[in-house]
Write a protein that binds this DNA or RNA. Structure first.
Lengths: 259, 259
DNA sequence: TTTTATATGATTGACCCCAATCATATAAAT
DNA sequence: ATTTATATGATTGGGGTCAATCATATAAAA
């Protein structure tokens, strides 16, 4: 029996919220709470997962920013993803001691994950405004972890806004690892005003600023400019120099780290 | 073939760390990464779960602070736990609009979860230093959520320290909901210096301060004093007035909210 | 009103997860 | 050195999970 579209959409929104609330939700539980059959629960799950921020697991579903889910790649035996390769390259730039900053975004989350593979963390401090990165690094023994305060942005699971900017205070970072949504001849762009503004505010605090963007971001135009190439210490990307040149991005060798 | 005890312990520690790092780990993945059979992986999983902070799910395991796992109670049809009842009572004290503060701790996390059951969040702002609370409330549409910055404390998944104190800035809370580790005739105590110091710093920012402690905290002595009864607007607890009196805690009716 | 599209629940077969059991090898105890 | 205890992997039966298929009822379109 067919059901009105708006009812379906409401129920799926409810499902999204339930998963988010509980962190993990078994399928049977979804059926019970939504009052639907397993078949419908699975269909809803598939729809919600397609919209992002939710990952299905055997027997249930998981709110995305709880889980880094590197495993999906590794398990399927696929080649290490572009993001993972970028992350390894980025971690190679992280000094053994000192203070670094990690931005929000899945690419930087991959950096955080790769960083956990190190052995000794004595003397290293990490500052972040990403709850995902904080979650990943929170369990690492010996690492000093700080989170910048700010207003919580739902989509990015990050802390932004004026309070985040002022929380930068007198922090001084030996290196900052930042994400972007697009890159063009002029520099890095981001999709949200809040993010771009925060990144702009952050740059003066960082001795070196590394932007980590995979090749899919090439030529993509997003509205808010985050940084000019002159402000970038190096771009860490899997895109070839040729592909970059085709998008009018020409960087000196010292500013391009190929992953 | 038997294996030395310290090897086993090391491997289980590794498993704990892996789960914590990934948030969620399927059993097959555990086998691969630990290089053991499924049987051993499950045995390790059982051991690690017994030590706490890890919850098993169908097909894998979950880091605890990712998941509130209310469902366990509800599904098994058990009576609502003391924490959940305290949480409901606490939510009843939260105004429809205004600004409130939520502390770290599992009891307050229950408050956050209970709060999500509300319908309309327009005009309500929540400030917290708890990553768990932020995770739970992050997905709630219409709610304005802020996280205080600070140093990340592993055990509490909370942000504390001098930077957290200064992040309080000029915030003014209509109500603050705080947790404690113990209570005695003099007031509330906490186990960590950082936490007690932060709570002391917070109190002047709150018009009303509600402490939420279940009955197991009665008479328990922990080293750091967080608040005197004179600073407490009300105690929300499941302990009976008689039990409180037996521990030399006598509060005027207006200061005691029984859950 | 008639037609079309689709949301739903039931069913089914394949696959996966799990606890229990057992034999074995080897660490710990004596 | 001998005995005991236990960590391990293989196996197995039971049950849970999943995707695909199908009939049906009803919303949406014509």
């Amino acid at each position: 029996m067919r059901v009105p579209q708006h009812i379906v959409d409401l129920r799926r929104e409810e499902l999204r919220s339930l998963i988010r609330r509980d962190g993990f939700l078994p399928v049977v539980e979804i059926c019970r709470r939504l009052g639907v059959s397993e078949a419908t629960a699975r269909r809803d799950l598939a729809a919600v997962e397609a919209d992002g921020h939710i990952t299905r697991t055997y027997g249930g579903a998981l709110a995305d920013y709880n889980s880094s889910f590197d495993s999906v790649d590794e398990r399927s035996g696929r080649a290490r993803s572009a993001k993972a390769r970028i992350a390894r390259k980025a971690v190679a730039q992280i000094p053994r001691t000192g203070t670094i900053f990690l931005d929000a975004g899945t690419t930087i989350q991959a950096v955080a994950r790769a960083l956990t593979r190190r052995r000794d963390f004595a003397g290293l401090a990490v500052v972040t405004n990403s709850l995902s990165a904080a979650t990943v690094l929170g369990g690492v023994a010996g690492l000093e972890l700080h989170v910048l305060g700010g207003q919580f942005l739902n989509r990015q699971a990050a802390l932004m806004g004026a309070r985040a900017v002022s929380a930068l205070g007198d922090w001084k970072f030996d290196a900052a690892f930042l994400a972007g949504e697009g890159m063009d001849a002029a520099g890095i762009t981001n999709s949200h005003d809040h993010i771009a503004a925060f990144q702009q505010a952050l740059l003066p605090h960082a001795t070196r600023a590394y932007f980590c963007l995979d090749a899919t971001k090439l030529g993509r135009a997003t509205p808010h400019r985050a940084a000019a190439w002159s402000q970038v210490s190096a771009l860490i990307t899997d895109a070839s120099a040729k592909a970059l040149a085709e998008n009018s991005i020409v960087l000196p060798a010292a500013k391009l780290l190929r992953a």
